[in-house]
């Protein structure tokens, strides 16, 4: 007669089998959903990942940060006015831990002269989830690239390991034409106070600086204009950090020469600049880069011919705003 299995043992075995099956499924899904998966625009956040579509070692300036970065700095305008290539690798409400992984990912493909780190994300409080999420995404890419399911075609999986399929014509910049004025004008009142960085955020800043130095790239801190997110106490903290790590720092909130008019140049009451504010800030910032870092003018370089065509798409996207300037 066949001996019946102990019920407790059976339950344990079933539990272990289920866990193993679940892990196997996640591993299998990660084969189908990863950064090499062909896709056009299904990936929600094409702005930061668009850099992966750029040919290696072609970007002179990289700018990292949260929404302050993508709403303020326009690489196409900087190309038009100063002739260097740049890309804004940023996403909304970005955590500094994600910036750190973006910097690592980006510098594996690009050798820019300078990397700018927009400082707003440094003050974003992180929960224990963020490092956990990054680890999970690194081990099982499906957690990062699952959104590709919308345009998923299993026939193309890993067809060409070197190809990334999404591109961003504005090079990471986000065009926002809405005008929603800010009443706050004296937000940069000088003070000796410091706004402390949330716990563990400095270690990510340090990691970003170290990654840059390892790749022979100069890291620079930059604070985008924002009456909502920025103040002098944060400025002081970043100034201290810049001194501590021997990094340059430019706070655009203190650069009156930009000529921002907060009654017209913001889309959300001073939280972010709009297209009009971005145009003024980019002109000033581009000039700062040109004057402080030795960058070649590539406008006549045939290798950069694609960059000379970007103004068409840019003009098309921003057409509605020209009359308002």
């Amino acid at each position: 007669m066949q001996k019946k299995m102990n019920p407790t043992l059976k339950k344990w075995l079933l539990g272990i089998a289920f866990v193993m099956a679940a892990v196997a499924m996640v591993v299998l899904l990660s084969v189908f959903f990863n950064e090499k998966t062909p896709d056009t625009d299904a990936l929600k956040d094409v702005k930061p990942y668009g850099l992966l579509a750029e040919p290696d070692d072609t970007i002179d300036v990289l700018i990292f940060g949260d929404s302050e970065a993508f709403s303020t700095f326009s690489p196409v305008q900087m190309w038009e006015e100063y002739g260097f290539s740049s890309y804004v690798v940023s996403s909304a409400s970005q955590y500094i831990s994600l910036t750190d992984s973006f910097v690592k990912q980006s510098l594996a493909h690009q050798k820019p002269k300078v990397v700018f780190l927009e400082t707003n994300a440094m003050f974003r409080k992180m929960t224990a989830d963020k490092p956990l999420e990054s680890t999970l995404e690194r081990i099982f890419p499906v957690f990062q690239y699952h959104n590709l399911w919308k345009n998923f075609d299993p026939a193309n999986v890993n067809e060409n390991e070197d190809d990334y399929f999404w591109n961003n014509a504005l090079k990471g910049f986000k065009y926002i034409s809405i005008v929603n004025p800010s009443k706050k004008k004296d937000y940069m009142k000088a003070t000796g106070k410091r706004k402390p960085l949330p716990a563990s955020n400095e270690s990510y800043v340090e990691s970003i600086i170290n990654t840059c130095k390892k790749h022979g790239v100069e890291p620079v801190f930059v604070s985008a204009p924002s009456t909502v997110n920025w103040n002098y106490a944060k400025h002081n903290t970043v100034t201290d950090l810049a001194k501590k790590y021997g990094v340059k720092y430019i706070d655009l909130n203190l650069e009156n020469a930009i000529g921002l008019d907060w009654s017209k140049d913001t889309c959300d009451r001073g939280d972010h600049v709009n297209y009009f504010g971005a145009t003024k800030t980019t002109a000033y910032f581009g000039n700062y880069i040109k004057n402080n870092f030795e960058l070649a003018d590539r406008r006549n370089d045939p290798a950069y011919s694609e960059w000379n065509t970007l103004h068409e798409k840019y003009a098309e996207v921003t057409a509605g705003s020209k009359s308002k300037i």
Binding site: D45, Q144, N147
Partner: peptide, 11 residues
């Protein structure tokens, strides 16, 4: 895992 609205681009 696949259809969850999490990760980049979702808040």
């Amino acid at each position: 895992i696949i259809f969850g609205a999490y990760g980049k681009g979702y808040i």
